[in-house]
């Protein structure tokens, strides 16, 4: 298949790696945009989700936000944000991606706090812990697996979605694909395929890395226990990328 041969040729050209808009620079750009978006998402979603979960309020609202976010195309926010007061450039893209990181972070933080065994909570209260102490010493440590799970889902999703920044010339590895398409299939087919391969490798690699980190982060006391986020939480969350 000539498509695959062309992709191999394109990947074997050292200039395609080291150019100012080459693979290395694009990967760095991609990771920076994604990291900023996830950090921003965490800064908003975690305090909110933890507070709602601690107070036991806003469950339906969390579900509604999660469901509604699925209906909004990423491409639309990526095109709309640069035309608002935010202006052109990376901030608009980071903000758009951060919005899509919020639902999984929020839902998992909320769920993690809600899934704490009521008896454990009661025992804490019986020992005289105040609301804040209960949150810090009992609820948050028990919610760590959920927070970590939400973080992995959000991070992988943002890295995947950051590819779409290429639609608005916003940088990242998606640019290699979109430039390839711009050249037409005959001239750019190899580049398109190579770009797709690079993006897939980055996403799968990060998924694997974060899954390992998630396991390492799990408090020892919880490793063998049943207090683990069910896989279905991840399945039910949005995944438009």
């Amino acid at each position: 298949m000539s498509g695959i041969d062309d992709a191999v040729v394109w990947l074997n050209d050292p200039l395609n790696w080291t150019n100012p808009d080459g693979i290395l620079a694009r990967t760095g750009e991609h990771l920076w945009i994604s990291a900023a978006a996830v950090a921003l998402g965490c800064a908003v979603a975690w305090p909110l989700g933890i507070w709602l979960g601690h107070a036991g309020r806003g469950g339906p609202a969390v579900v509604t936000v999660t469901n509604l976010s699925r209906a909004i195309p990423t491409v639309a926010l990526l095109t709309i944000f640069p035309l608002t007061a935010i202006g052109f450039g990376q901030p608009a893209i980071i903000l758009a991606l951060a919005l899509f990181a919020i639902p999984p972070l929020l839902a998992n933080a909320y769920l993690g706090l809600r899934e704490v065994d009521p008896e454990v909570r009661d025992a804490g209260r019986g020992m005289g812990l105040s609301g804040g102490q209960l949150l810090r010493k009992v609820e948050l440590p028990l919610a760590v697996p959920y927070l970590a799970n939400g973080f992995r889902i959000a991070a992988v999703q943002v890295i995947a979605t950051a590819t779409l920044a290429a639609f608005v010339n916003g940088g990242g590895l998606g640019m290699i694909i979109s430039r390839g398409f711009g050249l037409g299939m005959n001239a750019g087919g190899g580049q398109v395929l190579a770009g797709g391969l690079l993006v897939a490798v980055l996403c799968l690699g990060m998924e694997g890395l974060l899954a390992l980190a998630e396991k390492a982060l799990l408090p020892r006391a919880l490793r063998r226990g049943a207090h683990r986020p069910p896989a279905s939480v991840a399945d039910a969350l949005p995944g438009e990328a």
Partner: peptide, 21 residues
């Protein structure tokens, strides 16, 4: 699961050289 991790744009990039525009 693996498929879900691969972004749509990359998937289209895999398919396009074979299925065309």
């Amino acid at each position: 699961g693996v498929l879900y991790t691969i972004p749509s744009l990359a998937l289209f990039a895999f398919l396009a050289p074979f299925t065309g525009i």
